[in-house]
Design a protein around this nucleic acid. Sequence first.
DNA 1: ATGGCAGGTTATACCTGA
Length: 266
Amino acid sequence: MADVKITTWNINSVRLRIESVARLAKEVSPDVICLQEIKVMTELFPDDAIAAMGYPHQVVSGMKAYNGVAILSKKPLKNKGQQDWVGKSDARHVHATLPGNIDLHNFYVPAGGEIPDPKQNDKFDHKLKFVQALTRWGKERQDPRAKRILVGDLNIAPLETDVWSHKRLLKVVSHTPVEVELFERMRKSGPWTDAVRHIIPPEEQLYSWWSYRSKDWSAADKGRRLDHIWVTSPLVPKIKAAEIHRDIRGWEKASDHAPVTVTLSV
DNA sequence: ATGGCAGGTTATACCTGA
């Protein structure tokens, strides 16, 4: 039995926050770090600097200026790869197999723009189609024995306690009923278990993102839980701990997302 | 009730985020 500590973090530019990656590596020391919004082309990803922090095993899918995801690991990765989703090559997914034959998938689901209507807003249409594609993918691959982990910035806060005000966010993209319903279908397609809510009771308010547009993000505390770690059934009894690193949202030059960590005993 | 910030770019305004 060994612990595997996995952290997911929408870093909002890996080059701007390379020192924060170093600090996370030192202070949290996850075995695996999954990043979203690295905002850099694969060729320009700071792979040497991150290898020097103890993460020489990497799989990166980047593009210029937007999106981009990466898996960083202390231990060797197998079957490294990425997929395109809903007909776009926009660097929103990477995967790899961890020691112990655990498949890890890291996603950056589209934010969806402002207007929660797919007819008026192509970005919202893209988001809904992305979630539906992920649902089909889950169903096609169902295997009750498979050890799989799905992490990422899924850009949907499903529970009433995952947002600062359920009522006031009902028409705000990330917490609309149509998104929450499709999100739940996607979760059941794995079927996946929300590892964070397995540990932290659903009755508790819990957020992983706070807007930059607040004078005092922590005092206002108008957060949403957009970043998730899900596991398949064989891994559910292995979930040992879960944590959202709210303190990291308060670091100098912080990302607007806090890292989320789950520890498994495998 | 509204407006508020941050990152990146063949930039010095505009797109994107959520």
